[in-house]
């Protein structure tokens, strides 16, 4: 089993990394959205000719670079996710106007007489988008112009942009409603969870390296604090949790491209459960290991911690995913018990 990037995936990831390095990330913060879009990086997942239909697992390595750089650009919300939605819908996709698109989960919106109403909260990338792509609960994609939507823009704790949106009977234009793609809403929710997790993985890898280096450099009681066993063991835990998280992230990304829906749910919910459990504790432990400096806004550690926390909070809580996983385990176990005597009979 090998999760090393192929040439194409490496090329995309390196291009992102170069833009971020030129911008001086993660020590600075800026906005390099136009540099990224000029290179065609933000829309790699869009169908041709706008992009080239890259999948979420194609994008994992690039998203790791986004997290590692703590980049504030809305790469996932206004790039990766809308593209994956449109590519996934294929011929059932709505007609797309020009302009930056963001994707929203439309659960809770109502569609009446060809008009959408309702409120969408915390939509990543919605601050920057000109076009709003919505996946409705009944597995359609619909598209509206942001000009028709009341928008409250803000920053997330990690510096990335988002918005709350209010749709008051927004009429859908001709061709703005796509066809039904069975299972799309839940699939997209899982893809979004994986994309944010991949970004969080990049942040965790940076956090791990930083903490490891800090322990070696920081001296107290006349010696590097890395010589204290309690701190060594805490750092070993962070190391191992990150390795496990890396495995789950790549694995879950690959299940998003397969046809085995149960496996995908198991992988994605395991990933989210892990993120909200061990990874949240690992991030907190990194602050603890730094001591006071880890609490300061100026020191970049906090940016990586916040990145992981945002991925943890969005796209279903760790508890919601735990419940989904438990339900799945119960269903699969029961099915296995019923199947067993059948197999004997056939034999």
């Amino acid at each position: 089993m090998n999760f090393t990037a192929n040439d194409e995936q490496r090329m995309i990831a390196d291009s992102f990394a170069r833009v971020f390095a030129d911008a001086g990330y993660p020590s600075t913060s800026g906005n390099n959205w136009s540099a990224l879009t000029e290179l065609g990086l933000t829309e790699a997942t869009f169908p041709e000719p706008r992009g080239f239909g890259a999948s979420v697992s194609d994008m994992v390595h690039a998203l790791i670079e986004c997290g590692r750089a703590a980049a504030p650009e809305p790469v996932i919300g206004a790039g990766v996710l809308p593209g994956i939605a449109l590519t996934g819908a294929g011929s059932a996709a709505p007609e797309m106007p020009e302009g930056t698109v963001c994707l929203a989960d439309g659960e809770g919106l109502t569609l009446q007489d060809g008009a959408l109403s309702g409120t969408l909260r915390v939509v990543p990338g919605a601050d920057a988008a000109e076009v709003l792509l919505i996946c409705l609960a009944d597995d359609h994609l619909a598209v509206v112009s942001m000009a028709e939507v009341k928008r409250d823009k803000y920053r997330l704790v990690d510096g990335r942009g988002a918005a709350d949106l209010e749709l008051a009977s927004v009429k859908l234009a001709d061709g703005a409603m796509g066809g039904v793609v069975p299972g799309m809403a839940e699939w997209l929710r899982d893809v979004a969870a994986v994309a944010f997790a991949a970004d969080a993985l990049g942040a965790l890898l940076a956090l791990r390296e930083m903490t490891q280096d800090y322990l070696k450099q920081r001296k107290q009681f006349g010696r590097p604090i890395s010589s204290f066993q309690a701190l060594q063991h805490a750092m070993a835990d962070i190391y191992h949790d990150t390795e496990h998280f890396l495995s789950l992230t790549h694995f879950a990304a690959q299940t998003c491209e397969g046809t085995d829906v149960a496996l995908r749910k198991r992988a994605v919910s395991s990933l989210k459960r892990f993120l909200g459990g061990r990874i949240r504790r690992a991030a907190a432990s990194a602050i603890q290991l730094h001591g006071g400096i880890g609490m300061t806004e100026e020191y970049p550690l906090g940016r990586f911690v916040k990145r992981a926390v945002v991925a943890d909070m969005l796209n279903g809580s760790a508890d919601a995913h735990g419940a989904r996983l438990a339900k799945l385990i119960a269903e699969e176990t029961r099915a296995g018990l019923q199947e067993a005597p059948e197999q004997e009979k056939v034999a």
Binding site: H244, L246, S270, A330
Partner: peptide
């Protein structure tokens, strides 16, 4: 297996096992 408290423990174990299996 349908008990929410026991189910949550199983779910955590499943997640940690999957992480270990893939790793």
């Amino acid at each position: 297996i349908d008990d929410p408290v026991f189910g949550a423990k199983l779910a955590d174990l499943e997640a940690d096992f999957l992480a270990q299996e893939v790793t």
